[in-house]
Design a protein around this nucleic acid. Structure first.
Lengths: 229, 229
DNA sequence: CTTCTTATTTTTCATATGATAAATAAGCTG
DNA sequence: CAGCTTATTTATCATATGAAAAATAAGAAG
């Protein structure tokens, strides 16, 4: 009786290979983002509503399926318009950064993306390291370059220390997503304000640390005694 | 012959329970930090130079062992002197922050700590969420409070936006550790410079974003429509 | 309706896993 | 050395895992 209830006619329905395949990948991303890549193929199949061996009809091995998941997460989320946005000098760099980070975080601030990103990082997969390079080239180097242009600083490739400072901004914003969607700890709800403040601090700060031609402060080693005078 | 070589007399050596136990925990931290908490007990035992069932003499279950690992990672690394350092008003806040972050990152910027921290975060264990609260109370709230004191601002509890800004700093510095020890991507080697610049940007920036009584810029909401008109 | 392709399921395998029970031996005490 | 405690090992179990082979049935084509 209970048995009969469970065996409720699987109603085997055939899907077109393309449909099935993309459905597998999409749901596998959800699944692995929660369970980690050690999640079992049987449990995954149950979630997919099919039997486990069917997975092996579409992917030669679990690893191949995982690779497809990486692809959708890492490759399919970059909006090509962002390239233009960041380099559009008709807008102040501050506005460009605000808009970009709002859009970018709209894309990556969700449990699925963030968790897969971290799982991938911990596994040391090369696509993750590659992505870090992309971030530096497509986002941070541009921000520094555009900032320098707007500040009237000489046109030269971003210095390591400048990039590093941009990384602190990037990491700081990223960490906000972590706290919100991974730790699920209470955070300031208005993402736009958080971004705006972070960007403002970055822009105000960097001009003083590296100098808008005016005050060149190397920051470290200096640090006199501004206690009160 | 090969067999004989392998069975090279296990040379069973008895250790005192305390010694063995702490050895297990220490090496288990190393092991799990690399393999993740899904790492097998047999492989762990092999690394420990003992047989797998011996682990169960010292810990009722794998989970109990893992809990001990958490303890050493999360509880045993906070230096009580840091509490005094951050609140020592005989030093400029900038110096305090510099010293603190140098020491703090000396403690946590290593593969083992960072990876276990991330694995724990992904598992959603409560000790990890608890730690996030500790960071906010013991580090960030203090930084904001001490900054306000030094800037001559009214003595009031840190505003959410201020804490959030401190989180961006914290996260930015954390992310530097990630890039260096988890991604193993090329970074600026001089950690002190990175910290100094980040702290400088934070202090210079925050005073302008929240105003040292002088310029109060709310930053966001400003940003009109500079498209072109 | 019959035939044929192939998407899907049922069986099955080899291995790995966390954990337990029984056997062994290290090393202290007399 | 004898005797005893217990740290450590040698089986062993039940279950879960990724994967392959064989059996079934959905659905299009004739």
């Amino acid at each position: 009786m209970a048995k009969a209830a469970l065996k409720s006619r699987p109603k085997q329905r055939r899907l077109s290979p393309d449909e099935r395949r993309s459905d597998f990948i999409r749901k596998a991303a959800e699944f692995f983002s929660e369970e980690g890549f050690d999640g079992g193929t049987r449990e995954l199949a149950r979630k997919l509503g099919v039997t486990q061996p069917l997975l092996y009809r579409y992917f030669p091995s679990k690893d191949d399926l995982i690779r497809e998941v990486y692809r959708t997460v890492y490759l399919d989320r970059w909006n090509p318009e962002w390239d233009a946005l960041l380099t559009d000098r008709s807008l102040p760099i501050r506005d460009r950064m605000q808009r970009f980070y709002e859009a970018y975080t709209d894309a990556i601030f969700n449990r699925e993306w963030l968790r897969i990103y971290l799982f991938a990082a911990l596994k040391g997969v090369e696509i993750n390291k590659w992505y870090v390079g992309i971030v530096e080239d497509r986002i941070l180097a541009r921000i520094v370059t555009e900032y320098r242009a707007e500040a009237g600083l000489p046109d030269q490739p971003p210095a390591p220390a400048e990039l590093e400072l941009a990384w602190v901004l990037q990491g700081g914003i990223f960490y906000y997503g972590l706290r919100r969607y991974i730790y699920e700890s209470p955070v300031m709800e208005e993402k736009e304000r958080v971004i705006a403040n972070a960007v403002d601090v970055f822009l105000e700060g960097i001009s003083r640390v590296f100098g808008t031609s005016v005050k060149v402060r190397t920051a470290y080693a200096r640090v006199p005694e501004p206690t009160e005078d």
